[in-house]
Amino acid sequence: MALLEVKNVYKKFGKTEVLKGIDFSLNKGEVLSIIGSSGSGKTTLLRCINFLETPEQGEYYINGELLFDAKLAATYKESEIRKKRLKFGMVFQSFNLFPQYSALDNVMLALKLQIKEDIKTNKDLICKENNIKTRHQLAAYKEKLLKEAEENAIDILTKVGLKEKLNSYPCELSGGQQQRVAIARALALSPEILCFDEPTSALDPEMSGEVLNVIRNLAVDTGKTMIIVTHEMNFARDVSDKIIFMSDGVILEEGTPKDIFENPKFDRTKEFLNSIG
């Protein structure tokens, strides 16, 4: 069964139809690249999946279970949406690191807040399960969880090659390093699917290289399921199991890198691939 199934997604901005019926599915461990020219709806699709936009129509399923249905969108509470969107991680084109926090704190922030919220709302259950009787023990338990979260965050930052930069602020990091912190921040919440929205478009070629290597390692070493919106054709060809070519709000073509790059079915795809070199 597919890990993610996206069915029949429609999205309008005002009168402009940006997505006109998108269907695709993704298996666990697969890397999907979405390519296509600007304005074809790639980024909007990614934003819909991450609950940053609400489509007018469409459903998403995770492991066959309904995660989102546009018909029910109005009935979802904020807390439900928060839980649902954590199935996905998102890395933005412009990094969007929090400038007032160090690299480590950027990665830790959401984890910390989760731990605190969890202890506050499920206090009784946690106390029972861990045989906690005093307030002091509860504080120690919280301390232990935070410590583990920090170790986990340091591990992840080490994995993206930033062990030396744990305490650096975003303004002290290069673009490539910032984007790697952003990847670590998304990974720290262990999403089922990690999404990248043109992760290297704001970077020069050298820095793009280091970021692409990190993404490649994630795909190869950890078998992370990923959706990558990108203009880096060589990278897409190299790392993807599956490529989607979008044009005018529809998926025009879908297949393995070989299918798309060597035997494109449509003239529109050929044109796009030629124009991008």
Binding site: F51, L52, R85, M90, S94, L97
Partner: peptide, 15 residues
């Protein structure tokens, strides 16, 4: 920037 809010939301933070 809107990106700061969105980065927070995708990490599961409340408004």
């Amino acid at each position: 920037s809107k990106g700061q809010y969105e980065a927070g939301y995708v990490l599961g933070l409340t408004k």
